[in-house]
Design a protein around this nucleic acid. Structure first.
Lengths: 198, 198
DNA sequence: GACAGAACTCAACATATGTTGAATTTATGC
DNA sequence: GCATAAATTCAACATATGTTGAGTTCTGTC
């Protein structure tokens, strides 16, 4: 799936259609997810994509731009929020837990999500990206849909972020292996209570 | 409070009692808290303590040992758990929220706690330290006190970790500025429900 | 007051990092 | 088929990292 040979290739364009750009993006997603922004070096990404580090630069410019390109937020709020906010109000907590876990379950979404979360803990730019997204795309919309103090919505967000960390980043058992359904049962009432304002 | 001059000092022991060891530990706590394990370099720590990098090595050995020394877990479960687990069962959630926020509020505890949390996201050793502590010192004791499935206790832990991240690491408003009391009101029922098994 | 050991700095090594500019090979448009 | 543009590598720069060994100055003990 990736590089295995130390790969001494001669310079110049490779024959056939260009597939290196995609390879770099994939490698970047993997490594940012695994090591976070600062831990994933351009050189390691290039190595994983079987490519010279300078090529990464050629395609994406500085490291920061690569990160933005690779972590482009993999969840589209416009597609997801209507379902969550649309149904009956008394089951919003459940739909939110479902949706959250389903999105994290998608393999092509999980890499960027973990990468973003990991990086946000040590890198101010990544933290800002995450804040921006979470606050603009989610908190505000949910907030004025429900007319509930923002702290309560953030408490709900905290519950989900905490679960994501234990389940997907730290991989603490048993919460890392429990089924999505079981987790939904557990979390739905918590979220619902925050939205209900009780 | 720390170094300001580029400090060209001549070699050899400084006169007076030795205070550099403590200065290094303080600088290490600050920098590990701010940047995480990988982001905080020994050289930067030495600079902040106004000391040669080699002296850090002289006192603490490898970087990992410095980390362990600096992040020595600042919360003593033996002193804290009796209060949480001791009182009436129906208010355990509240005592747990109180205790958690009080410990994070202590200035001398917050640095190590943030450092540990930050580092655990990108560094496997730090992650193991955190897992060890949380699981051995807390989860298990709470678990067999209450005879409740471990997932539920981990869900409670997730709620608190999430709050810590939003409040102390990412500093998202308004949850970062809300009073401890208000947060306790918000979190206590959530935690209580997990312990009650309902 | 000599002397061992502790505190402390200097200089260096080996390695890693992001980034750049030039050189080389292929693809593409005419 | 030729010229231009794109893809790709190489070599290098400037800087940063953890760690080591040797040397210098002080403190404490007899």
């Amino acid at each position: 799936m990736a590089a295995s040979s130390p790969s001494r290739r001669r310079p110049g364009r490779r024959p056939g259609p260009t597939e290196t750009r995609a390879a770099i993006l994939t490698a970047a997603r993997d490594l940012f997810a695994e090591k976070g922004y600062d831990g994933a070096s351009i050189r390691a990404i290039a190595r994983a994509a079987d490519v010279d580090p300078a090529l990464v630069h050629h395609f994406f410019g500085a490291k920061e731009a690569l990160f933005v390109a690779a972590m482009e937020f993999p969840v589209n709020p416009a597609k997801v929020l209507p379902y969550v906010l649309g149904g009956p109000r008394e089951s919003t907590g459940r739909r939110m837990a479902q949706t959250f876990l389903r999105e994290w379950g998608r393999p092509e979404a999980r890499g960027p999500l973990i990468g973003l979360l990991r990086s946000a803990m040590t890198n101010e730019q990544a933290a800002e990206m995450l804040r921006q997204f979470v606050s603009a795309a989610i908190l505000s919309r949910v907030g004025d849909r429900f007319d509930v103090p923002l702290v309560r919505i953030e408490a709900a967000a905290a519950q989900m972020i905490g679960v994501a960390i234990l389940r997907y980043v730290l991989r603490v058992e048993p919460i890392a292996s429990v089924s999505e359904e079981e987790l939904v049962e557990l979390l739905a009432p918590t979220l619902q209570r925050y939205f209900d304002g009780t």
